[in-house]
Design a protein around this nucleic acid. Sequence first.
DNA 1: GGCCTTCCTGACCGTATGGTCAAATTCAGA
DNA 2: TCTGAATTTGACCATACGGTCAGGAAGGCC
Lengths: 215, 215
Amino acid sequence: MAETSTAVTKATSKKMRRKEAEALILSAAEKVFAEAGFGGATMQLIADVAGLPKANLHYYFPTKELLYRQVVQKIFQIWLQAADIFDQAEGPEEGIGAYIDAKMEISRRHADGSKVWASEVMHGAPVIQDYLETTLTDWTNGRIDVIERWISEGRMAQIDPRHLLYMLWATTQHYADFGHQIDTLNGGAPLDDKQWEAAKSNIKTIILRGIGATE
Amino acid sequence: MAETSTAVTKATSKKMRRKEAEALILSAAEKVFAEAGFGGATMQLIADVAGLPKANLHYYFPTKELLYRQVVQKIFQIWLQAADIFDQAEGPEEGIGAYIDAKMEISRRHADGSKVWASEVMHGAPVIQDYLETTLTDWTNGRIDVIERWISEGRMAQIDPRHLLYMLWATTQHYADFGHQIDTLNGGAPLDDKQWEAAKSNIKTIILRGIGATE
DNA sequence: GGCCTTCCTGACCGTATGGTCAAATTCAGA
DNA sequence: TCTGAATTTGACCATACGGTCAGGAAGGCC
């Protein structure tokens, strides 16, 4: 084992291909940006986590902003993926239930990414404002249409679809963004499988009953 | 005794009293920390916002960390205040309903503070970890007792109290922390009085019905 | 091997930042 | 008015940061 150990899996060959190197750096960057925020993160620290010299980072990502932008974009893609579940459902109980499941899974598996996104939005979305105005707006309006259809079909109560969506985002992402607070209140340990299941179940129970989609 | 303080925004007299100066600086710091995060905020920018020379900040707050800590503590106090409403209620519909109202009011009036708190927790609570482990833990356990009593009295469904609290925090704080995203989806304008009322009403409707505290 | 492209990296640079300090200013009370 | 403590401030400093660059190493292809 001549290779130095790093937090992120490191490639074995001396010379990396673009995609490998970029993925390695993006992964390290996501972690560091999540832990320290954009301003608090340093290229040196990202380099250390990736197990590469700092200058090598600048070879693949010329500036810190560019690296950060790619990290945020990666999250946003994953985030949007959960949308498919919503559309393919035949009713609110199935659609919203599955959406909660999917978003909770993302909160668990991609907590760092969720934090980066939250941080970005909290600071006024300086980097991804255009995404909010285009992709996210379109996505939201599409889902509002679906919910309104469900309401007009009498499959759920008359709820403001927009605020329902905010509620879904808030409750699910909370488990990623405020994971540290939740862990602390859990005695310092991360939620185990059973507790995650309880969290999902609770959210689904309350919201689905709350919107009158279950009886 | 009689303070001749007139304007909170800017100092009028050449020499300030400690409390005035500290309040002015804390207010500016809260704004800047919320917008830029701890790492992104600079003492120079806080000084500019406060309308004071940078060296003057260091006279009242020796280090950036100390200033930040005070800002976070201030938020936490406001945050805990909303707890009183919870205890004085005679049932879940009144108690949780009023708590949602109170927390939504905080999200609207102290959005910057909420963001600072969120940022702090998201980055692992390096500064206020002790608060999470003591005050917040105690507060949470106390509220869990109240909710469990309501459940045992048959006044609401059997819901995990802990996850219900997380849900209340998540949904209400979302309107502060993700306010920029919400504003963008609102056509770029902040929510007006009517929209805030709709948001509050929606949350209360869904959650109270969801936990079986209303019929 | 010879050559070219891609990749790697230590050393370096200008700038911005948190923090210091000593001299100046203000003000309450004697 | 005088005195001493509290406050204000411009100038200054050491450090750390993002970014650059020149030269070296690795590997594919003939």
